[in-house]
Design a protein around this nucleic acid. Structure first.
Length: 414
RNA sequence: GGAGAGAUGACCGAGUGGUUGAAGGUACUUGUCUUGAAAACAAGCGUGCCCGCAAGGGUACCGUGGGUUCGAAUCCCACUCUCUCCGCCA
């Protein structure tokens, strides 16, 4: 959630920034409730102070009937005030959490198509065979049987393609380990508190992309960002230990409801895929720098594998609720003749940390929310699409990118 | 899944209705002593929110949520988690 003090100090800016992200928020309503809430809180606390003073006079001895009578009156008054405060408090909180994290000033305005290309690397081929036809012909992927055992958009990877997935994972893991990330396996389900705190839609929401476990307070994770954010919930971290660099490896489960019409063929958009994720807990003043660093690591991975790509500074309207800034890396698709999203990294500033009460004790003794960042190292199903499209050889084989051969029994092609 | 025990501050650990935000200890910070360190001694040492320019004041918090009471860490109810034993099991 956003800092209420920031809203009090910058009501117009908050409104503007929210609209820029595509959210209509009731800032005036929030501030009015904030005002009411503080007034009532002051009243309640004054009454409680009265009660505390009264009970202090009754310590030990037997209270007189008169004292008890006075206590009963105070009790009623407190209850009345509290019952007035409760609904205001609830409404106040629901309005507060409806405000998205404002985009940073260097985020371009606009929506999905307004991202700003800030870099291009490598030149791609002009054409290639569609990855699904290519992989199916070689018996590397089986969507039909995936549908049989689970449903549409589920799949089996087989043989060399499954091995290639493993190779990409291993390679990426080596890269990020060199940069200081600690590998973690994580729970593949999280409770509502963690999911909502991370910024994912609550169970009741229509637009939720998560799978829920019936009868349990659990949802399947859409990314290891969820458990990795919850990992330090309700903790006060020590400044000397920051930044904390975690690498989460897990399957990601997504309903992908409402994505029809988007690029959906084959492995590009599926209900389940494995992902190696970088996650960072950072000092507030270091988070922008960390964000650039995560981007550099992602670039390093794709440069070394040899995939042509571009980097896009995502526009405000396409950022998502908790992110203040996001970079996507889009790979060159010779099949579609354009760039398609491959990875992304976000700076969520103190937004998730506020929700989940994750703070840092500074050297000077003050305590403040940390900043959290996440970035894809490799998102597997999609990485396979990028490699298949960009490494087809004339002899009908798929070249194994040189840096991956170490993890593929030194094979040069498959 | 069954039975039992438990959950208190950074940590250990007292506390079963009334100066308890919480004894005592450890750790930490500062000071005295010391050539320096250790030891010893002294002082300090939770978080959120509200009011206040500040100094400071108020309030809440002893797993979570309800309840009883003039008053709850302490009594009652529900839930969550941890530990031990049994069962099951990769």
């Amino acid at each position: 959630m956003i800092d209420i003090q920031f809203v009090r100090d910058n009501p117009e800016l908050v409104k503007e920034k929210s609209e820029q992200k595509g959210y209509t928020v009731d800032v005036e309503g929030l501030l009015a409730l904030d005002e009411q809430r503080r007034q009532l809180l002051t009243d309640v606390e004054a009454k409680r102070a009265e009660r505390n003073t009264l009970t202090a006079t009754m310590k030990g001895g037997k209270p007189s009937p008169k004292q008890i009578e006075q206590g009963k009156i105070l009790k009623d008054e407190i209850q009345t005030l509290e019952s007035q405060l409760q609904p205001i408090d609830d409404k106040y909180l629901s309005l507060l959490v409806s405000i998205p994290n404002p985009a940073e000033d260097d985020v371009p305005p606009g929506g999905e198509h307004d991202g700003q290309e800030i870099k291009k690397n490598g030149t791609g081929k002009s054409q290639a065979e569609d990855h699904l036809d290519y992989a199916t012909a070689r018996d590397w992927v089986d969507f039909e049987r995936g549908a049989k055992v689970a449903g549409a958009k589920f799949y089996f990877l087989k043989g060399d393609l499954a091995l290639l997935e493993n190779a990409i994972t291993q390679f990426a893991l080596q890269v990020i380990q060199r940069h200081g990330f600690t590998l973690m396996t994580v729970p593949h389900m999280v409770n509502a508190k963690t999911a909502v705190g991370t910024g994912f839609a609550p169970r009741s929401s229509e637009q939720s992309d998560e799978y829920y476990v019936e009868g349990e307070d659990l949802s399947l994770i859409a990314t290891s960002e969820l458990p990795l954010t919850g990992y330090h919930a309700d903790e006060v971290l020590d400044e000397v230990n920051l930044p904390l660099l975690y690498a989460g490896y897990s399957p990601c489960y997504r309903k992908e409801a409402g994505t029809y019409g988007k690029h959906t063929r084959g492995l590009y958009r599926v209900h389940q895929f494995n992902k190696l994720e970088m996650y960072v807990y950072s000092l507030p003043e270091k988070s922008r720098e960390m964000h650039e660093k995560i981007l550099k690591i992602e670039e390093e991975i794709w440069q070394q594998i040899g995939i042509p790509y571009r980097v896009v500074n995502i526009a405000a309207g396409d950022l998502g609720f908790p992110a203040a800034k996001k970079y996507d890396i889009d790979y060159w698709s010779p099949v579609d003749g354009k760039y398609l999203e491959l990875t992304s990294c976000s700076n969520c500033t103190d937004f998730q940390a506020r929700n989940l009460n994750i703070r840092v004790r500074r050297q000077d003794g003050t305590i403040t929310p940390v900043h959290t960042l996440n970035g894809t190292a490799v998102s597997l199903a999609r990485s396979l699409v990028a490699v298949i499209e960009n490494f087809q050889k004339d002899n009908g084989k798929l070249e194994v990118p040189p840096v991956l051969r170490l993890y593929m029994n030194n094979r040069e092609e498959i």
